[in-house]
Write a protein that binds this DNA or RNA. Structure first.
Lengths: 194, 194
DNA sequence: ATAAATGTGGAGGGCGCCTCCGCTTATCAA
DNA sequence: TTGATAAGCGGAGGCGCCCTCCACATTTAT
């Protein structure tokens, strides 16, 4: 039905388009960092020196833009889960990864769109990023549960929601510290005591 | 410096103004419940049948409106802490109150403004509401710490942030359930095990 | 060189925010 | 009762942002 990607009819993607795409992501990244995720898209286009229409062509929604910017980091975070799982005992790995997760979220500042991705709710655009994170946390939790070191009668994702949500309220470095304590309490609470 | 409230020059507040104020709060409450806290203020004014200028006269910012609407419920929540403290053992009281807190937040739907009040950040308007909540949670935590039943090496407020933040991400009844589990884990984690 | 596909830019319609100020209405004093 | 006057009302209007749409420009392939 659809064309295969190596169909002979395929054309090389235009060079200028790719350049603009990168330029927009670069610009958006700094603007978002400066002004939070509610920064005006028109401003981003203006600073990047392209028309607003171009921005919308590449990123049909604000979410698409945000998501594109942070896909790399999300991938890295997911990868970290695997490597931690291989190099640390289950509970330690989980704890360390949760700390990294918080750092990841905190640096995203007010990026509620990214956080919303975790709900797995509406946005198709986030589906794959969300899957990465969900897979990561499930991997770590399952491992610790398998060894009997912790019990968990809830969706691990909800723990991430709490940690991420805290960041959305109390943004900045203060939450890093608080979250660290919180993680310790959670781990302690999840330890199978009997 | 400022006029005393019983200064002879004081005038009776106008009846129509008070009526409009109440009408606006009533309307806003239902509209916010329907459409979340991002509902248009102009729509609220329209539905209430008053001019937009009137809305802004009574509530100079969106926050002021939201805050006014929920002041009652916030007060009740704070009062619940005191009564729970008098009728339940420390840890039970804390757990029950946290559950109530989550319910309170969940029913506020997407009211990030209310949640922000907990940061004690910018908004002077929220200062007193925030103080009520902070006082409530501190009362309950201190009591449980005093009896030695729990230890807590962090600001109790940060626990509220996590619970409230989770609600802001995963809104609705699902979070009620998740939060309940989370509260149990937290309580377990805070119990002084040794 | 030329055709076709692809991408560009910005005008424009819609909406929400908030301010400002001429008009209305309630209160008070005479 | 009747002004006088403080208090309140309302909505037009300026601004900025969102997003769509399409005539025009640029790139690629032939």
């Amino acid at each position: 039905m659809a064309e295969k990607s190596d169909e002979p009819t395929a054309r090389k993607p235009r060079a200028d388009a790719e350049r603009n795409r990168l330029l927009l992501m670069e610009t958006a990244k700094t603007v978002f960092a400066d002004k939070g995720s509610s920064a005006s898209l028109e401003e981003i286009a203006r600073i990047a020196g392209v028309g607003i229409g171009t921005l919308y062509r590449h990123f049909p929604t604000r979410d698409a833009l945000v998501s594109a910017i942070y896909r790399n980091e999300t991938t890295q975070l997911a990868a970290a889960a695997k490597s931690l799982a291989e190099t640390h005992p289950p509970v330690d790995a989980l704890r360390l990864w949760l700390v990294q997760f918080v750092d990841y979220v905190v640096t995203k500042h007010g990026m509620s769109e990214v956080l919303d991705s975790l709900v797995g709710g509406t946005s198709e655009l986030y589906a794959d990023s969300a899957d990465l994170i969900i897979g990561a946390v499930n991997l770590l939790v399952d491992r610790a549960v398998a060894t009997g070191e912790i019990r968990l009668a809830m969706d691990p994702l909800d723990i991430l929601r709490a940690l991420a949500g805290g960041a959305s309220i109390s943004c900045g470095p203060a939450w890093r510290e608080a979250a660290r304590q919180l993680i310790d309490i959670l781990i302690a609470g999840m330890r199978a005591s009997r």
